[in-house]
């Protein structure tokens, strides 16, 4: 069953188990993020977009796949909002949608980016192939 945008945002919140309302918009996450310049939407925006239920743009964006899950933002967030957990939840929400978005073998080579750590590609492949 297709979920509407609000329901998707709700799902992301549920998967993450976190409350985006706790965010005080200090931007420390984006200040700490090593992949900031690779992203169209940045960690502080993820939190805000999930909070406002504006998640379609986010799920379509490459940004969520650019997060290395290094947890710099989780470690430094003073409000316990943990942006990386939202990003992970967004990925899960996407792949949990039945019949779509699973990573296919042939889709991997075009995604390869020389600057992307190999480990990230391997773990993404393991995770999202099924």
């Amino acid at each position: 069953m297709e979920k509407n945008e609000k329901e998707l945002a709700q799902l992301i919140q549920e998967i993450s188990g976190l409350n985006p309302k706790k965010c005080m918009k200090c931007g420390k996450c984006s200040g700490a993020c090593p992949a900031f310049h690779e992203m169209e939407y940045h960690p502080h925006q993820f939190v805000d977009m999930v909070d406002r239920g504006d998640v379609n743009r986010l799920l379509e964006s490459k940004s969520i796949w650019m997060c290395l899950t290094c947890f710099a933002c989780v470690e430094r967030c003073p409000r316990d909002v943990k942006p990386a957990n939202f990003i992970e939840a967004a990925r899960l929400a996407l792949i949990r949608q039945q019949g779509c978005n699973h990573l296919k073998d042939e889709a991997v080579p075009p995604l390869l980016d020389e600057e992307m750590p190999q480990q990230a590609i391997v773990s993404a492949y393991r995770k999202f192939k099924k």
């Binding site: 200090c26 931007g27 420390k28 984006s30 200040g31 700490a32 900031f36 502080h44 925006q45 710099a72």
Partner: peptide
């Protein structure tokens, strides 16, 4: 915005921070 990281480098301090109004790091 908030400073995310300060790293000492060659006698200087490299300050990585976000500028939220410019949506920039």
């Amino acid at each position: 915005g908030m400073v995310g990281k300060v790293a000492p480098k060659d006698g200087k301090l490299m300050v990585q921070a976000s500028d939220l109004l410019a949506n920039d790091q």
